[in-house]
């Protein structure tokens, strides 16, 4: 269980995917982390972050990378909690009654 993917690996994968036009294997691997559920295929709990549904995956990847860099998370840290925290900070859900 310690063999978790690290923040550094996610950043490298997403950066490489973006440099390559966000297509192919790396883009697909990056996308998995953009919608981090424990095992992909399930819908992430909606209350944790609210990315605009019309925002393209590449743009979400760019914003995730920026949020991870801004958070200063170490490259060797496990990715799942760091990515969840970065997504929650980048795409906060509107408080009840905001709409």
């Amino acid at each position: 269980m310690r063999a978790e993917v690290t923040v550094g690996e996610v950043v490298a994968t997403c950066r490489a995917a973006l440099d390559d036009g966000f297509r192919g294997t790396r883009a697909a691997a990056c996308e998995w982390f953009l919608d981090p559920c424990a095992v992909c295929g399930a819908t992430p709990p909606p209350e944790r972050w609210c990315a605009p549904p019309d925002l393209a995956a590449a743009q979400r990847a760019e914003r995730l990378l920026a949020a991870l860099v801004q958070a200063g998370t170490a490259a060797g840290a496990p990715a799942p909690p760091a990515v969840r925290a970065a997504l929650a900070a980048e795409f906060p859900c509107p408080a009840a009654g905001d709409d």
Partner: peptide, 18 residues
């Protein structure tokens, strides 16, 4: 039981992607 887990799955996918 301490070594096999979800990390293996995501990790292998990332290793192949990278």
């Amino acid at each position: 039981s301490g070594t096999i887990g979800m990390g293996n799955i995501a990790g292998v996918a990332i290793a192949i992607a990278m």
